[in-house]
Every structure is written in C-alpha cells, then in structure tokens.
Design a protein around this nucleic acid. Structure first.
Length: 295
DNA sequence: GCGTCGGTACATAGCAGTAA
DNA sequence: TTACTGCTATGTACCGACGC
C-alpha cells in the first residue's frame, strides 16, 4: 500500500486508478505492507535517511490469499469489500510499521501529515466509484459481455480522458498518450520510445499493449453523441532503426525485409519480440503496431 | 517543495557452454 | 558430473528533470 524509502528517498502509495483497473480486469487485490527494513548501507547512502531491503508482512499476505482461494464471488466484490472493511486499518498498520522501523533503524521517514490527505482522497474516489456503479445497476440496459463497454470521451483542451465501465460496474480511467484524427478515423495511440536502444524494453511494450487492448475491445466510440470510427495503435520507436513497419498492414515479406536491413540493429530477442507483435496485431482486431526510428 | 516520470546502474538468478 | 564462466532477463535503487 505504501513504500517509504526514508526521508531522503522516494515515497510511493497505491493509487485509486490501480484499484479500479483491477476491478475492470477481474483481478483480486491483496493488501500488503512492509514489516521490516534496513538502513541502506550503499556507498553514498550511508549518511542519508534511506531504507532498503524492505520485507512484507508475509503472514498477512498469505492469510488473504487463502481467503481468496475459498472465495466464491467476483474480484470486484472482493475488492469492494476489502476497500470498505480493511483498507483504512491496513494503511494505519503500514504507517505504524514504519514508525517501528524508524525506532529500530534510526532512519527518519516521511511525515505522517500527507497520509491523512491521501486517505481522504482515495476514500472520496471510492465513494464516487460506488455512486457510478449504483447508477449503472439501476439502468435498464443489461450488459452481458466485457466487450460491451460504456464509454465516455471527454475532450479537455489537449487531454482526452476515457472512462471505461464493464458489466460488473468496474470502472477505469485512462488517458491515452495521443489521439490523432486521420482519414476520418480516430487513432488512439500509445507511444513508447527508447533513446539508447533500438526497441523499447519488454515491460514498456507490455504496458502499452495492455492499455491498448482495453481500448481495442471497445464496442463503439461516441464523440458528442455521434459514433465515430477508430483504431488503436502502439508506436514503438528506437535508435538507428532503418525503415519502418506497421502491423498488421505489412506482409510477411515486409517483415522479413525489415529484419534483414536491421540485422545488426535488433538482437535475437528483439527480433522475436517483433515477430510476436506481428502476430498480436494480426489476431487483435482494431490494434495496429508500428515499429520505427525515433527521428 | 512536492510528487511523478524516465533513464540508468547495480545485484541477482537462471541458463547454456566448456573444461577438468 | 562438477566447477566455472559469460550472457541475459529481471527487479530494485538511485537520481535528475519536469510540472504544478
């Protein structure tokens, strides 16, 4: 839920968007907090208030996993209950745990002040989510499949926000990198770039794909009450890439040619990833993938 | 000043190849 | 079979840049 790396380090807290994301994808959430940590002994860090080697309270994690194994309802249901009944107290536990880590290690941690504000904000977002789901369940239209999403498209200056809702009432807010209007079609695009390598790292590609697969499964895109045509696109750019390719438009020959002219640019693993991306675009309706140079 | 993001450095684990 | 070596993938930590 929270990771405090000491006063001179980073502090990370779970965001509500992550929780609603899990709701949308039917993934069960396990709350966890760190129980022990050591003062960082790395050179350059010994004189700072920095924690490393943080370990989870494992019993608490295992307990929840066992509960989930015996649970018979949807992840949304589990997550909702978890949030209502355990979130605040577990967060307090996490903070208390950091207090005792401070006493054990002498490492000063971030002040507790911001935490109340955080809890208030995340609770507010949860309430908003509950209100929207309530409205959804009252509506006469029964949605039967995950692919039938309700979609709102808000244009706010240059930023566009999608709110996707599935039939269970899970909601996730996503902001795509770019929206391009071309040949009467909206292209929802995620871009991943790498300045040093020729192809972005696999986790980055996966992240982009993941967001786009949600978009590409949308039934329809409504802008100002009018249905508009759209595709989704993952644009991968890297260093020294010769030529460019767009899947699934490109032929097998095009793919072989791209790999041939970039034989020294892409390593074996990267070539394999590109081939898999070609397959992904072939099998995923409405998804395009572009591989090109970053200049 | 704070929170966030992206790039990078570093440690570690897994794996395959090779020599003893 | 064992010990060693180098390569790669992965996760964590660190740090600078940026916007608010």
């Amino acid at each position: 839920m929270i990771k405090d790396e000491g006063k001179d380090g980073d502090i990370d807290k779970i965001q509500y968007s992550t929780i609603s994301w899990m709701n949308l994808l039917n993934i069960y959430i396990v709350l966890a907090y760190y129980e022990t940590a050591k003062k960082s002994a790395k050179k350059g860090q010994v004189n700072k208030n920095k924690l490393s080697n943080q370990k989870f309270a494992n019993d608490f994690v295992n307990f929840q996993i066992n509960e989930i194994l015996a649970y018979r309802q949807s992840a949304l249901h589990w997550n909702k209950n978890l949030f209502e009944e355990r979130f605040t107290q577990t967060f307090e536990k996490a903070l208390d745990s950091y207090d005792s880590i401070f006493h054990q290690t002498g490492v000063i941690i971030h002040s507790r002040e911001g935490s109340d504000k955080y809890l208030h904000k995340i609770r507010e977002e949860f309430e908003e989510f509950k209100n929207i789901s309530l409205k959804g369940s009252q509506s006469a239209s029964k949605r039967e499949a995950l692919t039938s999403h309700k979609l709102e498209y808000l244009v706010n200056g240059l930023k566009a926000t999608f709110s996707i809702e599935n039939y269970l009432g899970g909601i996730y807010y996503l902001t795509p990198d770019e929206i391009i209007f071309e040949n009467n079609t909206y292209i929802i695009q995620e871009s991943k770039n790498t300045s040093k390598a020729s192809l972005p790292k696999l986790p980055d590609i996966q992240d982009g794909l993941f967001k786009l697969i949600l978009f590409s499964n949308l039934d329809s895109l409504i802008l100002n009450d009018e249905p508009v045509s759209f595709v989704t696109k993952l644009k991968l750019t890297g260093n020294n890439v010769v030529g460019s390719i767009v899947f699934p438009d490109a032929s097998l020959e095009d793919l072989e040619y791209l790999l041939e002219v970039n034989i020294k640019i892409f390593n074996t693993n990267q070539k394999a990833i590109i081939k898999k991306l070609a397959l992904e675009a072939q099998n995923n309706h409405k998804l395009k993938i572009e591989v090109s140079s970053n200049f």
